[in-house]
Design a protein around this nucleic acid. Structure first.
Lengths: 265, 265
DNA sequence: CGTTACCTTGATATCGTTCAAGTACCGTGG
DNA sequence: CCACGGTACTTGAACGATATCAAGGTAACG
């Protein structure tokens, strides 16, 4: 089975391996989680707020959102779910989902029993760390979004979101150089940023007018990254670019010095 | 050492045991984490955005905030840290903190090497689940805050925050029936809710005028919980009240049937 | 008993929303 | 091939929620 590496690599594997190199066993375990691909139509609910999770899953392809809708129709999107994202990682521990998960596009989903998460943590320290790292990273993104919603203007928020998405897609190998596909309605983006569609539209226009981006059939091109970062108030978002692994590498080396997988970095 | 139970119980233990009953060994391990109490003055930075964590810690007493400050002085508070909260739980895995942590009051902090987190997960399945549960719960609170910042009015946001704090303090045994201490400046609350102090103040006044709360020397009393929930648009926040443990109890029982600690519930 | 930090309130300004209308781009059925 | 209807995008005008500016009040504290 130890065939040559450059076969197709899932966004999930690719994402986790930006952090820690996994052993062949771990990679196989991951592949196991992804081994039950099922197509899902756009606009289907994969999990529902207030309902128990139906096990855990990996989003293999397509975009989805995690969102909350109020009785009066207002809706807030908490996060985009991009290919290579776990859904219901905490299903073991939460009786019910706190947000609804809905696909935006055609998507592929691989479900697996959530007990496997526990098993992964018990058996595979590198994998466990990589998952913990990616969870921590997603939490950091959410806390950055809180900063956006609370204190940034519409214009800054949008600039920030575009940079965030670009970075997240790059980690998964889903960018196209200075541009990326964004298969998403403006209404959805408005619900991510806590804005009205109208005002979001005007913010897009301003970013275009200022020469930072072009936007065309649901694909964004970054023309001036530095400018966009200035527009976003990227004071310090080294966070998104940073490789966070140094300290952990040391810890892991201490925990399992036999872990040859690390030396392959 | 197995003395009678009703000795002083730390907010952390109390919080975790609302979810899963811990074994005596686990409780001792937790006590170990809390065994190095150090006083910290108000307004001290415990962790700094962009700097590596100085190990992990438990906040034993006092309030703190996790926040981000921009170059132009705007500030967003991401979350309140209440007694019984871990700080830098992910320190193993993150080279740098993504937010600054600052004490608001006199506080007590017990630091411990972050490797102990890994050890806890490896050795104590119940404890690990309880920590995962509390992490998931805090993530749910953040995603609820995103909904607030994005889609709720100032008035709704404040009502929601007060209910949230009340619930969180109750879990730790830090409420006083229908009221609780809130040792916090209005400027801080404004930075939590993404509002100006002036407008926050008016929102407080409206909640008082509408007879839902009283507010007095940094202590809040809930006069009309149902009304406050209506004001907050508590469509469905069963989440905050819910005991999330049923499913996990089953999983744990399967994993370690010898785990007598569960039968003590 | 003056200083400082916080709270409160009024007046004005602004950012973002809502309402309304028009345009462009499909896919579908005649 | 065209008419139709739907969905998304775009733009203008009026309105409203929240910010900013300014000032006064109060309590704690040296």
């Amino acid at each position: 089975m130890a065939e040559a590496r450059p076969r197709w690599e899932s966004p999930l594997t690719r994402k986790l391996e930006t952090f820690v190199t996994l052993s062949e066993t771990e990679r196989e375990f991951l592949a196991g989680l992804e081994s039950d691909p099922r197509r899902v139509a756009p606009d289907s609910d994969v999990a529902e707020r207030g309902e128990p999770y139906d096990g855990s899953a990996v989003l293999l392809s397509g975009w989805a959102i995690e969102h909350k809708t109020f009785h009066d129709g207002r809706r807030q999107v908490v996060d985009f779910l991009l290919p290579g994202t776990f859904i219901g990682l905490y299903a073991n521990v939460c009786d019910v989902a706190d947000s609804t998960v809905t696909t935006l596009t055609d998507a592929t989903l691989s479900r697996f029993p959530s007990e496997l998460v526990v098993e992964a943590f018990a058996r595979f320290p590198h994998l466990a760390s990589a998952i913990a790292w990616s969870t921590a990273r997603e939490a950091a993104i959410l806390s950055e979004r809180i900063a956006s919603l609370g204190r940034r203007s519409a214009y800054e928020r949008l600039a920030h979101l575009l940079l965030e998405l670009w970075a997240r897609l790059r980690v998964r190998g889903l960018d196209r150089g200075d541009s990326f596909a964004m298969p998403v309605t403006q209404a959805v983006v408005a619900d991510v940023l806590g804005l009205s569609v109208v005002h979001l539209n005007r913010s897009y226009r301003r970013l275009r007018r200022d020469g930072y981006i072009t936007y065309d059939t649901r694909s964004v091109r970054i023309l001036d990254r530095a400018g966009l970062e200035r527009a976003a108030g990227f004071d310090d978002d080294y966070l998104l670019h940073r490789d966070m692994s140094r300290r952990l590498r040391e810890t892991l080396a201490r925990l399992s010095p036999h872990g040859s997988s690390l030396t392959r970095v």
